[in-house]
Measured scan of single mutants.
Amino acid sequence: DHWHVHIDGERIRLDGASEEFIRTLEELIRRGTDARELKEIIKEYLR
């Protein structure tokens, strides 16, 4: 599956992301997590 998110107007691909990770991201977004912080979390995950 190819997922991607838009954060700060930037399109970030989440290739190979699990549904669990996507749900976690959605939860963080709902909580109002800062965009820079979200991008860091995604970069760490994709390593």
Rank of each mutant, 00 (worst) to 15 (best):
I7Y: 04
I42T: 01
R23S: 10
E37Q: 13
T33N: 03
L14A: 04
K39D: 06
D34R: 05
L38R: 00
I29G: 01
K43V: 13
D15S: 11
A35K: 08
I42F: 02
E20G: 09
H2S: 14
L38Y: 01
L14F: 05
G16E: 06
H6Y: 12
E19H: 12
R31M: 10
A35C: 08
G16F: 10
R11D: 15
R23E: 09
T24A: 12
E26H: 11
R23I: 09
Y45C: 01
G9M: 04
L46H: 04
W3Y: 14
K43W: 13
E26M: 13
R47A: 15
R36C: 07
R47I: 15
I12C: 01
I42V: 09
R47D: 03
V5Y: 05
I41R: 09
L25Y: 02
E27C: 06
E10F: 05
I12V: 09
E44H: 09
E26L: 10
S18N: 08
E20N: 09
R36L: 11
I22T: 04
R23N: 09
L25F: 04
F21N: 01
T24S: 12
R11Q: 15
D1F: 11
E19T: 12
D15H: 12
E26C: 09
F21A: 02
H6W: 15
E40D: 08
H6S: 13
L14H: 01
H6E: 15
W3H: 07
D15L: 07
Y45W: 11
E26W: 10
L28D: 01
K39P: 01
T24C: 08
I29W: 04
D8Y: 03
Y45N: 03
D1Y: 08
L14D: 00
R30V: 09
L28A: 08
H2F: 10
Y45D: 01
A35M: 09
A35N: 06
G16W: 10
E27A: 11
L28N: 02
L28P: 00
E20A: 12
L38N: 00
H4L: 12
I29K: 02
K43Y: 13
E20Q: 11
G16H: 11
A17M: 08
E37Y: 13
T33H: 07
I42L: 06
G32L: 05
R31A: 13
H6L: 15
H6N: 14
I42A: 01
R30I: 11
G9S: 05
D1V: 08
I12P: 02
A35L: 10
I42E: 00
I29R: 03
H2Y: 13
D15C: 03
E27D: 10
T33Q: 03
F21L: 07
A17F: 07
R11S: 15
V5N: 02
I7F: 05
R13I: 15
G16L: 05
H2W: 09
T33D: 03
L14I: 15
R31K: 12
E10V: 06
G9Q: 04
L25G: 00
I12S: 01
R36Q: 14
I22N: 02
E26F: 10
L38E: 00
V5Q: 02
G16V: 05
Y45T: 03
E10N: 05
G32H: 05
K39V: 08
H4Q: 08
R31L: 14
R31E: 11
L38C: 01
E26S: 08
S18T: 12
A17Q: 03
W3V: 10
V5H: 02
V5G: 06
R47Q: 15
E20D: 08
L38I: 13
G9P: 03
E40T: 10
E40F: 10
R30F: 08
H4W: 15
A35Y: 07
E27V: 08
D8W: 03
L25V: 10
L14K: 00
I41Q: 05
R13W: 15
E10Q: 04
T24P: 00
R36V: 11
H4E: 15
R36G: 13
E10P: 00
R36A: 14
R11H: 15
R36M: 13
D15R: 07
L25T: 01
H4T: 13
T24G: 09
H2D: 12
V5W: 05
D15W: 14
E40M: 10
E19W: 10
R11C: 12
H6T: 15
E10M: 04
E44F: 06
E19R: 11
R23Y: 08
I7S: 02
I42N: 00
H2G: 04
V5I: 14
V5L: 08
R36Y: 12
A17C: 12
K39L: 15
H2I: 13
L25I: 12
R13F: 15
H6F: 11
R36N: 14
Y45H: 07
I29L: 10
D15M: 07
F21G: 00
R47G: 14
E40Y: 06
G9C: 05
H4G: 06
I7T: 02
F21D: 02
S18F: 03
L25R: 00
A35E: 09
T33W: 07
I7E: 01
E44I: 05
